[in-house]
Amino acid sequence: MNPETQSREPRRAKKPLNGNHVPSEVIDSARSGASPSVAPASVHALMGWYETPGELYKACEALRDAGYQRFDAHTPFAVHGLEHAMGLRPSRLPWIVLGGGLFGLVGSVLLAWYTQGVDYPQNISGKEAFSYQAFIPVFFELTVLCAAFATFFGMWSMNKLPRFFHPVQTHPSFERATDDLFFISVEAADPKYDRVATKRLLASLGAHELCEVGS
């Protein structure tokens, strides 16, 4: 199936919302061989898309093997194993979670110690004021709660989200990155970046709608 020939879903008169949309710098892929006419004032990245996760995977491998560092894939779902093709290191999130969990554990023990043992000791069914057995459910719950907060906020902050706008969102077809297309973006800031050579590399692997997006 070729998404270009496939009938586009009836587009409901959608206008780009962000002002700095790059006027469609659509460069047809290797097929037409046309070269770009106008370049945006300040280029953020070269972008294009593939039809299948497999093609994207190969393109990422090619970029990785060519020594590119600052490139990214944008996909509608997590493509299994793509981090290997991109040469990414495993996420360091578990360490943040461990910290959150330890904070919750120590914090809950201190809370129980102060409120139950020191500030307001109560004699409940003859048990010691600080009865650790009876506090274990509380320790557990607060540990999990803090670990979960650490996971949630840790993940979003590692991803630098939420954010209002990112240049890659100006690619004319980018709304389909959350639907059925598999995008690649190579940042102009990458030392290996070369407008022509990078484009040729991606196009040779079947990229569509290659164009530069501004920052």
Binding site: D72, V79, E83, L88, L93, W156, L161, T178
Partner: peptide
Amino acid sequence: LGWRGSHRHWLN
């Protein structure tokens, strides 16, 4: 939240 399907994000 400005999600853009980045694989660097997917990893985390």
